[in-house]
């Protein structure tokens, strides 16, 4: 039982990080039909921005702020104007290819210009153990969980309770109608890109102490974001959160109780089942078929 709780909590912590990444992923899809195959690399990269800032002597908290700011510029603004915008008129497929190439580019850039080896990354709090029901839970997991939940709450508040957020949602759900209603659609699309960059940067700060900063980190994370988004529902923020959490817990439990050799396969099997049984995802809306 104790080990079960332990697995549950660490799965939840990982799942919460997946959820952050998946939310950004679905936001991009909703507002601009961007299937970002480089999403994982978008999480890998901010850790290196932060490490570079720290190499110049900045304290950790300042480096984090710098990292988030640089992410907004590079992964938000530059990504939108340089990669996405020129591709939009060509449709979904070429953009998918472009983002695959971008993922490759970012990975190789970090490998060649920073390091091919994993780098230690500072932890948010010193590791200490918390005992709950006989299970040993590290304070790290709890902090990760707390930050992730706070981020999700903050974002939900932004999207649901503010005028800006409602305009963003309107843009996501029906750009044409939103434009008629006087929503500055283009600016709203840009904001979702910025929001995605921030979410990726936060996820990066949370996950890098555990994963260690390495150029290949994006591969697993990007995959997790896809799976979470599809399992939860490609067009719903709530769905992405649910998908992320399910994925994190499932991964841990299946590795412990089923087969560690096939641990990577279980989420994929769930994915295939979801696609077959409920293609819009657990919480998704049915989208009209776009040919």
């Amino acid at each position: 039982m104790a080990s079960f709780i332990q697995l549950l909590v660490s799965g939840l912590a990982t799942g919460a990080i997946y959820a952050l990444i998946a939310v950004g992923f679905t936001l991009l899809w909703q507002t601009s039909q961007t299937i970002n195959f480089a999403q994982g690399e978008f999480v890998m990269l901010p850790a290196f921005f932060i490490l570079i800032a720290m190499n110049y002597g900045a304290p950790f908290w300042l480096s984090c702020l710098i990292g988030i700011a640089v992410s907004i510029v590079v992964l938000g603004i530059a990504f939108k104007y340089i990669i996405v915008d020129p591709m939009l008129k060509h449709g979904v497929l070429p953009l998918v290819i472009s983002s695959i190439a971008l993922a490759l580019f970012l990975k190789e850039a970090v490998k060649d210009f920073y390091s091919s080896q994993a780098q230690p990354f500072p932890v948010l709090v010193e590791a200490s153990d918390v005992h709950i029901f006989g299970a040993v839970i590290s304070s790290q997991s709890l902090v990760v969980l707390a930050v992730a939940i706070a981020t999700v709450i903050g974002m939900t508040f932004l999207l649901n309770r503010t005028r800006l957020g409602r305009m963003m949602q309107a843009t996501a759900q029906n750009p044409t109608l939103a434009r008629i209603l006087g929503v500055p659609v283009r600016r709203m699309v840009l904001y979702t890109f910025l929001l995605n960059a921030v979410l990726c940067a936060i996820a990066s700060i949370l996950i890098s102490p555990i994963y260690l900063a390495k150029f290949t980190n994006g591969e697993t994370l990007g995959m997790a974001a896809f799976l979470a988004a599809i399992i939860g529902g490609f067009n719903q923020v709530r769905g992405a959160i649910l998908g992320g959490v399910i994925l994190g817990i499932l991964d841990n439990l299946s590795a412990a109780y089923l087969s560690s050799q096939y641990r990577a396969a279980f989420p994929l099997i769930i994915l295939i089942i979801v696609i077959l049984v409920r293609p819009q995802g657990l919480l998704g809306r049915v989208e009209e078929r776009t040919v």
Partner: peptide
């Protein structure tokens, strides 16, 4: 070692 970077960049330039 820069081959893959260049390849990826070429594809990104080529796509649009």
């Amino acid at each position: 070692g820069y081959y893959l970077i260049i390849y990826a960049a070429l594809i990104m330039v080529m796509m649009p």
